[in-house]
Design a protein around this nucleic acid. Sequence first.
DNA 1: ACCTGAACACCGTTCAAGT
DNA 2: ACCTGAACACCGTTCAAGT
Lengths: 198, 198
Amino acid sequence: MRRLAAELDTGASSLYVYVRNTAELHAHVLDDLLGVVRLPSEGVREPWAESIIRILGSYTAVLLEYPGLARSALVTRPSGPNYLALVDRLLSLLRQGRTPDAQAAWGIDLLLLYATSIALEHGTRRQTLGDNQDEDVLATALLEARVGNFPSIEALGDDLLSGTPRTRFAWHLRALLTGIAATPRHRDEEQHQAGSQP
Amino acid sequence: MRRLAAELDTGASSLYVYVRNTAELHAHVLDDLLGVVRLPSEGVREPWAESIIRILGSYTAVLLEYPGLARSALVTRPSGPNYLALVDRLLSLLRQGRTPDAQAAWGIDLLLLYATSIALEHGTRRQTLGDNQDEDVLATALLEARVGNFPSIEALGDDLLSGTPRTRFAWHLRALLTGIAATPRHRDEEQHQAGSQP
DNA sequence: ACCTGAACACCGTTCAAGT
DNA sequence: ACCTGAACACCGTTCAAGT
């Protein structure tokens, strides 16, 4: 707020005429930025799953530059036109892939939550750390775990640290899509509005 | 920092003798709290997938009460003994379910990222909002979207808002487990250390 | 070695006062 | 209606000074 106000050569308090709080400001900015997430590949003939991965990759790329927005998006789901267009496009791609509607509806949540979280994770990490020794901490912890009481960690070994963030991201999304498509809902999950208690 | 220091009847600066910064403090507190996440169901004979869901449910419940810790856990992966024990237990359950090692290794990431994010999302939502009108905002946005240019959202309708957080959580985890078990890695994903660029 | 107080450099939000 | 300044109530972190 204060930084934006300074940029606008005014006091922070003036902004509260246009916006109720920081969350609302973030929502507006984010929806604006999402205009860049180009939905189509209209002309391109690629498998629907590839389109989803491409779109979510681009969504993640936007949030990666503004971890603060990713944080807001995680807590308060955006609801601007560009966000809705994104959701709509993803839903249509899932349906195109013959994912049952009920699963597509809940699957969207999973996909966007994943993309947002990954952006928040890597974005703030980039923002704070010197980019390096963070991963090292976990790496050494895992190494030490190998001489410890953690047989499965020991057994998996380097698999746990393998891959680049990019390849991990792609595999994660493919796993999500597979799971969404293949996991039917139970009878007792069908009903009602979502409440507030998780 | 300041609050903890006050609780300890000292100045905030004194804490920096024991801890390098807030992140490090959070890591310690979290690992301590994770002692409560009872890993076993040792005696219980339940399917491995049920055990995983139960354990992650309990992990989420802990973080739900301290969204600040969830935030830290998302950005800086914990590496204390209790966290490692949790990871080890999850890995062993995945392997028990005959999930190939390479997939289990990357699947763990997905599972813990999901559990942490959901806790961060609902935890901070609970902490800030009056718990109610938040969901309403999205709900009305979706309603309005129905008379708009979002055919897939329109088609899905109430499916998008159906279910309780609990049933959604359970379905999400089952979808994750299905996806992890059923999604092989590509040949070009196998190699190397994880870098820092996503 | 450990602790302290004070200071630095920030936040978001409110509110009485101005135009 | 819109803007302003000042204030309130916070943060995390550093650092010279004490014991």
